[in-house]
Simulated assay, not measured.
Amino acid sequence: MASDHKGFAVVIMGVSGAGKSTIGELLAKALKCSFIDADDFHPQSNKEKMKKGIPLSDEDRTPWLKVLQDVVKANLVGGKPVILGCSALLKQYREILRSADPNYRAGGYDRCVVKFVLLDVRVDLLMDRVQKRAAEGKHFMPVELLQSQIDLLQVDDSERIVKVDASFSPEAIVDNIKRSIF
């Protein structure tokens, strides 16, 4: 990861239930750096919308992504590596996060110190995970919104997003990410 500063960011992305928090926390521990869960930065209005089964709009997501951009940028400028768990479903959302790298120029994916890893999971496994989490009261995202996220997810090969099969054990997934990025 070429850069003028020592900091880097890895965004663990994917739809709800893919394992962003679990994998992000484990990867951060393995790399001895901070983990940021994007869900912790949603305003209450976004959480309420999702609880009601209403998908978020770009108007809901953009301010939230800009806050995340600022948090990642502060880490990068401070030379601190950071792992961010964030859905980052659309290229335009990832561009906001990439812009946390002060040296990033649109399309310069190879030189950007903000890297993306897509946790790729079969729909049936995602449904099981989200239903289990909802039943345990562990998340505000209802299973009814999962399909809207799946439909929204766009991955452009030119972005060089690392895709990992997230149906394996968390440890195997983290090992795969470390081999793929570092």
Rank of each mutant, 00 (worst) to 15 (best):
F8M: 05
V10R: 06
V10A: 04
V10W: 07
V10I: 15
V10Y: 06
V11P: 08
V11D: 02
I12N: 10
I12E: 02
I12F: 07
I12W: 05
M13Q: 04
M13D: 01
G14K: 03
S16N: 14
S16K: 09
G17T: 01
G17I: 06
G17K: 10
A18F: 06
G19F: 09
S21H: 04
I23W: 09
I23R: 11
G24D: 05
E25D: 10
L27M: 10
L27S: 09
L27Y: 11
K29I: 03
A30F: 03
A30K: 15
L31E: 15
L31P: 00
K32I: 01
C33M: 14
C33E: 01
S34G: 02
S34K: 15
S34L: 12
I36D: 00
I36E: 00
D37N: 15
A38N: 14
D40Q: 14
D40K: 15
F41R: 12
F41E: 12
F41I: 10
F41K: 13
H42N: 12
Q44H: 11
S45W: 07
N46K: 12
N46D: 13
N46T: 12
N46R: 10
K47Q: 14
K47W: 08
M50L: 11
K51H: 05
K51V: 11
K51G: 07
G53P: 11
G53Y: 08
I54G: 07
P55H: 10
P55V: 11
L56D: 05
S57K: 13
D60M: 11
W64E: 04
K66H: 14
V67T: 15
Q69P: 08
D70P: 01
D70A: 14
V72K: 00
K73H: 13
K73N: 14
A74N: 14
A74E: 13
A74H: 03
A74L: 07
A74R: 12
A74G: 08
N75Y: 10
N75D: 10
L76Q: 07
L76E: 07
L76T: 01
V77M: 09
G78A: 14
G79P: 08
G79Q: 02
G79V: 01
K80A: 11
K80H: 14
P81Y: 02
P81F: 01
L84T: 00
L84D: 03
L84Q: 06
G85V: 03
C86M: 04
C86K: 01
S87L: 01
A88F: 04
A88H: 07
L89R: 08
L89Y: 07
L90V: 05
K91L: 09
Q92C: 11
Q92F: 04
Q92L: 02
Y93R: 09
Y93F: 13
R94C: 04
